[in-house]
Simulated assay, not measured.
Amino acid sequence: MIRVLVVDDQILIRAGLAALLQAAPGIEVVGEAEDGEDAVARAAAIRPDVILMDIRMPGLDGPAATERILAASVDPLPRVLILTTFDLDEYVYAALRAGASGFLLKETGPERLIEAVAAVARGDMLFAPSVTRRLIETYVSRADPVPDTPAALDALTAREREVLRLTARGLSNTEIAEQLFISEATVKTHLNRTMSKLALDSRAQAVVVAYETGLVVPGGLEP
């Protein structure tokens, strides 16, 4: 059973999402929160598997709440699924950088929403890697260097760096395995070790780091 916390400052939207998810097999809505501060408190108390997080809320917004929740959580960390109106949105980029597992547009249909909750609960990629790459390239290319980006890429082995680079380029685990002539399980192992060494919480966050550290260059060839 996937335990879900629903966060939205609009009560009708929140209630509708909760009712939809509660009716889905294998999903239990264990709580609702009306803003970011409430979400942080409820996440600590309930420890849900997945948090469906509105991105723009008064006070503490979705990205800030995501960062606080993940920083305060213990393993297994909750998976944060961001709800937004626009896919190319600086708030979405901030949420991915904070460790959110993915995002969905609010116009998404019920079946896709349920599938997305199940996917992030499994730790899978939520959307086509090209979407993440397009979003990240857009904002990294217009942003100044980020001073607190994990810079210890030299802690990674050559193979771990290569897997991270290909992940950031938008390749799936299957495609990476085929290109490097290794198994998908080995790809997952390298990526998990990379995330552990860089203290990252999600695959999307790893892609952000690959761009921000210059391992992958927006619109150009990797060094």
Rank of each mutant, 00 (worst) to 15 (best):
E28C: 11
Y211G: 03
P223N: 05
S183N: 07
P147K: 00
P48F: 12
R142P: 02
G123D: 06
L126K: 03
A206N: 02
A18I: 09
K188M: 13
V208R: 00
L221P: 08
P145K: 01
G102E: 03
P110E: 07
A151I: 06
Q205D: 04
D201G: 13
L52P: 08
R142E: 14
R79K: 14
L171H: 07
L88Y: 10
A41P: 02
D87S: 12
D144S: 13
V50F: 03
D201C: 13
L21Y: 04
E222G: 12
Y91L: 15
D75Q: 14
P48C: 10
R169K: 13
A155L: 15
G123H: 04
T186G: 06
L12H: 09
L156S: 06
I136M: 08
A64C: 08
A143E: 09
A18Y: 03
V117R: 04
P110A: 13
I46R: 07
E37V: 12
L12F: 12
M125H: 09
V163C: 09
E175Y: 01
R79C: 05
E107R: 14
Q10N: 12
A168F: 00
D201K: 14
S183D: 07
T66N: 09
D9P: 05
N173G: 12
T84Y: 03
A72M: 11
P48W: 07
L153M: 05
R14N: 01
G31H: 03
G26E: 09
E37R: 15
I182K: 05
A151L: 12
G99F: 06
A41M: 10
R68F: 03
S172R: 08
K188A: 15
M1P: 12
H190P: 01
I51C: 04
T149K: 04
D8T: 06
R142T: 11
F127A: 15
A44R: 11
T194F: 09
L5S: 05
G59D: 01
E34F: 08
V30T: 11
L198P: 01
A41L: 11
M1N: 11
T194I: 08
I136K: 01
A185H: 05
R47Y: 14
A100F: 06
S73M: 08
R134V: 10
E184G: 12
R159N: 11
S172Q: 09
P145M: 04
L60E: 03
P63H: 00
L83P: 01
G214V: 03
R159K: 10
T194S: 14
L81P: 02
E178H: 12
R134D: 13
I27T: 04
S196I: 15
L70D: 02
V29T: 08
G62P: 03
L153P: 00
A155T: 13
A19M: 14
I11H: 07
D154V: 05
R79I: 00
A94G: 10
A95C: 10
V208Y: 01
L221R: 15
A44C: 07
I27A: 01
S130T: 13
K188G: 13
V7C: 08
R14S: 02
A199K: 14
A65Y: 09
